[in-house]
Design a protein around this nucleic acid. Structure first.
Length: 838
RNA sequence: GCCGGAGUGGCGGAAUGGCAGACGCAGAGGACUCAAAAUCCUCCGGUCGCAAGGCCGUGUAGGUUCGACUCCUAUCUCCGGCACCA
């Protein structure tokens, strides 16, 4: 008997699949389609079992759908641009492209080794000009529509590196490479994509995703977009500051009579003007300086205390003419709203804290609808709920909701305010002062200003040999042959933009490119995308809940408005799988706790690796890797292999029910008791496994059921006694077909051992037979007062009046019924009898 | 602080109102073997009991129900995300 040899079997079947082009697919409107996709990897480090879990889940789905007759698109590619490649290249004195391509080669080898059913002809790599030219093309379309624009913006800047740092490179306010150097913030010109143009749609369309996306992802996106409905109100500055006004945003205009100050963000443009010549100028300027210096750190230390100072100026409440002091406070954000707030201490927690600290007045203007009235002097915390307005001029006595309406209307009528909805979502800053990314296709000409690179000149190709130092501005700026260019308009000397695009641009639309990966006329053919989209199932980590998945949604809406696609949402269903951990933390190279996928394949084979990641936990949960437990999966595959091998000789020549025209074996001749038991177990297993695959994705339970089936077959050995070969064959076939999506190599091998000359990939998912699965005898639990006291074996479907006498007589139950009166009986057919006694 | 998710044997987990602990790992005992590995068989939540069997048990405390891991209320712990958003 040959032993199970996964290495040989896996290599054999991977070659057969490739030779027969089993996973290659084309758009075909005559067939139902299914697009299943795992998030594309960033090729860096080693591929470990955390990666494999993601692709295994997707591969199971792809293979099941194929067996069920769908035309399945299941592609793979590389998120190949990015900072780590550039840093690694500098460190190892190589080229980012060399480093990246080496990693891709290794990643690809490991993925192939695991037998994932990808259509490799559709492979894309985002660092290739064939791909990134379309990033540039999209950028130009957005530029034409005002969706891409340039503006000055604040960035982290390390004076020693003389470059911009990503937020991740700022450690407690210091540069990651120069631990003694405080990071500064600088204003530089940066490119933005106008995600805010779609705020409302991005929010509204989340409704379309309900049911298909995890609720928490939807919630996270909703919070991120952060819609607030309220009003903007302008306060005039009194006396010396006359002529200036301060605009605030509030969601509670109904509390405006309770404002005891205005508070500006430290970075508010009016602060300097207000301080000039004010009584507080000297003291306040010093405090402002201090506040601004600590502002970088304050962003890191989010628990910072509220601090502020008085500007010496007053503003006039447009509703009642009250003069209230203007302060500067560190907790007011310049980036949100108008950068200024009205301080209503009695009805806002933050304002209460600030007012208490600095001795500002705390006037009460809302009273609870029920409960004790608030007393200004005894107020211990802010009352932030709705209620009844008081001390609010004409609105006193009204419900706050009503007051809100009236006050907003008054502000609009008198011209000092207006209703407004604002969003937390900001435009997407896409400029990166780095080499390894998509060049932004724009040229600056002294005469014509900013000029878009004409489509015909795309792609703007990255120079092959830049000087990479990790210092200074974009390496592209230090590459004269790249920078110096003729103006497309006037032909005069001009300069190229030297920033590259954020790599999230690459991943925002890559899944469209898979539909038509080699198109050199357009990013993709509309018809092909129309066939495959939307993605039926997307699978990836929760880490991308906001960035990638929000940018992708934005990109889709832009493409729709460009007329490229018909749909508004690219992804129908999203599945976020759990992390693979070791020692309680996610596997990662930097932590040094990875279990390499390749070593796993060498030791146990890919099928065991795949099976274990599916068996150890349900896919949405984190999975703690255990070297000991994996032995169980290995042993199981060996057990199944031996089982098939033992009976292969007997069954090879016969036709099973699935093959014979006569239908199921059970129907052709009266089955023996042993056959009945076997077929019943097999079809019950099939029913539940089918359900698990189709709806719940509880692969761990499905595997447990298949294990039970093999245990049952084992218990019925020798099968040669009392089980006809065609029945043996039917059950063994079901077994291998159910395993096929999860452990495709060993399943294919066993399928062949059972006498099939056609590869298993031609086999459909088996249909379960309800008749064969049906139990004829059931066990009924007999309870007394809800506690199990005995069990009965009865014919399935036996009615209550027949079961009850048996239950009363059941010895275990009878002992607990003695001398008591049954007051109530609950009967659940085929399940239980519960007798309630007094 | 807010928003999610989760708490079940020594461990991973199963059970979507009806026998808690399926399946697997680890462990114990046995068979086979000169021996080991592999394989096969049996046991395996706690507790009382010679046994039959009883009692307790799904983070904690209540509630609904004939019956609750499952539904409701409160509470604790852990994990993840957001965090002065006016």
């Amino acid at each position: 008997m040959a032993e199970y040899n996964p290495q040989a079997i896996e290599a054999k079947w991977q070659k057969r699949w490739a030779d027969a082009r089993v996973f290659e697919t084309e758009a075909d409107p005559s067939k139902p389609k299914y697009y299943v996709l795992e998030m594309l990897p960033y090729p860096s480090g080693t591929m470990h079992m955390g990666h494999m879990r993601n692709y295994t889940i997707g591969d199971v789905v792809a293979r099941v759908k194929r067996m069920r007759g769908f035309n399945v698109l299941h592609p793979m590619g590389w998120d190949a641009f990015g900072l780590p490649a550039e840093n690694a290249a500098i460190k190892n004195n190589t080229h980012p492209r060399t480093w990246t391509n080496n990693n891709i080669a290794e990643f690809q080898r490991v993925l192939r080794r695991f037998g994932f059913s990808f259509d490799w002809r559709r492979e894309i790599s985002t660092c290739e000009p064939e791909y990134y030219r379309w990033n540039q093309w999209f950028f130009l379309r957005m530029l034409e529509r005002g969706l891409a624009y340039r503006k000055k913006s604040r960035v982290n800047w390390c004076p020693k590196c003389a470059t911009v740092l990503a937020n991740e490179q700022v450690v407690n306010g210091y540069c990651w490479r120069h631990e003694d150097t405080l990071v500064e913030t600088r204003e530089i010109e940066q490119w933005f994509l106008k995600t805010t143009a779609y705020s409302e749609q991005l929010l509204d369309d989340l409704k379309l995703l309900e049911g298909g996306w995890p609720e928490r992802v939807i919630t996270m996106q909703r919070n991120w977009i952060g819609k607030s409905t309220g009003a903007k109100v302008r306060f005039a500055v009194a006396d010396a500051g006359a002529g200036e006004s301060i605009e605030v945003f509030t969601t509670r205009i109904d509390t405006i009579y309770g404002a005891s100050a205005l508070i500006l963000a430290p970075g508010h443009p009016l602060v300097k003007k207000l301080l000039a010549g004010s009584s507080e100028e000297a003291a306040a300027s010093a405090k402002l300086q201090e506040m601004r210096q600590s502002s970088v750190k304050a962003e890191e230390l989010e628990t910072a205390d509220k601090v502020g100072f008085f500007t010496g100026r007053y503003a006039v409440n447009p509703f009642n003419g009250a003069q209230i002091p203007v302060w500067v406070g560190n907790f007011v954000l310049m980036e949100y709203g108008t950068g200024a707030v009205m301080c209503v201490p009695a009805h806002d927690e933050r304002d209460f804290e600030f007012a208490t600290k600095y001795g500002l007045a705390i006037p009460v203007v809302v009273q609870p609808k029920d409960g004790a009235a608030l007393n200004e002097k005894a107020l211990k915390e802010a009352f932030t709920e709705y209620g009844t307005s008081v001390n609010s001029g004409a609105c006193s006595g009204l419900a706050t909701s009503e007051a809100m309406e009236r006050m907003a209307a008054e502000a609009e009528a008198k011209g000092f305010g207006k209703r407004e909805t604002i969003f937390r979502l900001k435009d997407w800053g896409v400029s990166r002062q780095r080499y390894w990314g998509t060049p932004i296709p724009v040229i600056y000409c002294a005469k014509d200003g900013m000029v878009a690179v004409p489509d015909a000149d795309l792609p703007v190709i990255l120079p092959a040999n830049p000087k990479l130092t990790g210092m200074g501005e974009s390496p592209l700026a230090a590459t004269p042959e790249f920078v110096n260019v003729k103006c497309p308009k006037c032909g005069g000397d001009a300069r190229r933009e030297t920033d590259t695009m954020d790599t999230f641009v690459d991943s925002s639309w890559y899944f469209y490119r898979y539909c038509d990966p080699h198109n050199d006329k357009a990013p993709f053919d509309k018809g092909k995308v129309a066939y495959w989209f939307p993605i039926d199932q997307y699978i990836g980590g929760i880490t991308h809940a906001i960035l990638h998945l929000l940018y992708s949604r934005f990109w889709c809406k832009v493409m729709r408005d460009l007329g490229l696609v018909e749909h508004s949402e690219p992804i129908s269903r999203l599945f976020t799988q759990g992390m693979v951990q070791k020692g309680g933390v996610a596997m990662s190279k930097s932590r040094g706790n990875v279990v390499g996928a390749e070593e796993m394949a060498e030791k146990y084979g890919a099928d065991t690796g795949r099976l274990y990641t599916l068996f150890a936990a349900p896919p949405e949960k984190d999975l703690e890797w255990s070297e000991e437990s994996i032995e169980g999966s290995w042993r199981f595959l060996n057990r199944v292999y031996r089982l098939v091998e033992r009976h292969a000789e007997t069954v090879r020549g016969v036709k099973s029910a699935t093959e014979s025209a006569a239908g199921n074996t059970g129907a052709t001749a009266a089955p023996s008791a042993k056959e009945t038991r076997l077929l019943r177990k097999a079809h019950q297993t099939l029913r539940r496994v089918t359900q698990d695959f189709e709806t719940r994705w509880h692969f761990n339970s499905a595997i447990a059921l298949i294990m039970e089936l093999t245990n049952e077959m084992h218990a019925l050995e020798p099968l040669s006694e009392g089980v006809r070969p065609e029945v043996q064959k039917e059950v063994l076939e079901l077994l291998t077909l159910m395993l096929a999506p999860m452990t495709p190599h060993i399943a294919a091998e066993m399928w062949e051992m059972l006498g099939h000359e056609e590869g298993q990939w031609t086999a459909a998912w088996p249909a379960f037979d309800a008749e064969l699965a049906r139990e004829t005898e059931v066990e009924i639990v007999v309870q007394v007062n809800g506690r199990v006291r005995g069990k009965l074996k009865v014919a399935a479907g036996m009615p209550e009046e027949q079961v009850l006498p048996l239950a009363l007589a059941e010895p275990g139950a009878a002992a607990h019924l003695a001398g008591k009166r049954v007051v109530k009986t609950i009967f659940v057919a085929d399940k239980l009898v519960n007798m309630v006694v007094s």
